[in-house]
């Protein structure tokens, strides 16, 4: 059985005397755009929420940070850092590929499984309590960046 995170987080917040968190429940059919050609011919984008930044960039903060960072896909992996309040960072700080699969994706392009990668990946700190702010502030910005990158498909990676 998978972990029941919604129930556990509800219990945790109750114990801390926080209000009940209103999770987003979408009862509609999600939008749907099938991949127009094989992945081996596609340009793939990457968007990750695990608080990944590149040394030299201003790091994320933990109070509803809706900022978005642009990380070149050819970044040296040794320049990547992780900062986030809601998950155990130990492994991500050792090997960012556990939440930001940059070497993995570059390898798959090398072996021809993916056509190519967008010029840049986009990262944010996903622990944003306000789903309204995610919808209204972050989503349009991310989509605009992905359109500018002219990607066919995008892999989204939460942490």
């Amino acid at each position: 059985m998978p972990v029941d995170y919604i129930e556990r987080i509800r219990e945790k917040y109750e114990a801390l005397d926080y209000g009940v968190y209103q999770w987003v429940v979408s009862a509609d059919t999600p939008p749907w755009h099938p991949l127009p050609k094989p992945l081996s011919e596609c340009r793939l984008g990457l968007v990750a929420s695990g608080g990944i930044y590149m040394s030299g960039q201003v790091a994320f903060h933990y109070r509803d940070d809706t900022s978005l960072l642009k990380i070149p896909m050819d970044v040296p992996t040794s320049e990547l850092r992780a900062t986030h309040f809601a998950y155990d960072l130990t492994d991500a700080r050792q090997d960012p590929n556990v939440v930001f699969p940059i070497d993995t994706l570059r390898g798959l392009v090398g072996e021809g499984a993916i056509g190519n990668l967008a010029a840049n990946a986009y990262t944010f700190m996903g622990g944003i309590y306000s789903s309204r702010r995610v919808r209204e502030e972050l989503a349009p910005r991310v989509t605009e960046c992905l359109l500018a990158e002219e990607v066919d498909a995008v892999l989204f990676v939460p942490a």
């Binding site: 929420s49 996903g126 944003i128 789903s131 995610v134 991310v142 359109l147 995008v154 989204f156």
Partner: peptide, 18 residues
């Protein structure tokens, strides 16, 4: 909330044809 945020972004991007 990471998983929720990511889901919302994916729905937004898919709606414009990605």
């Amino acid at each position: 909330m990471c998983h929720q945020s990511v889901g919302l972004l994916a729905r937004h991007a898919e709606a414009v044809g990605i």
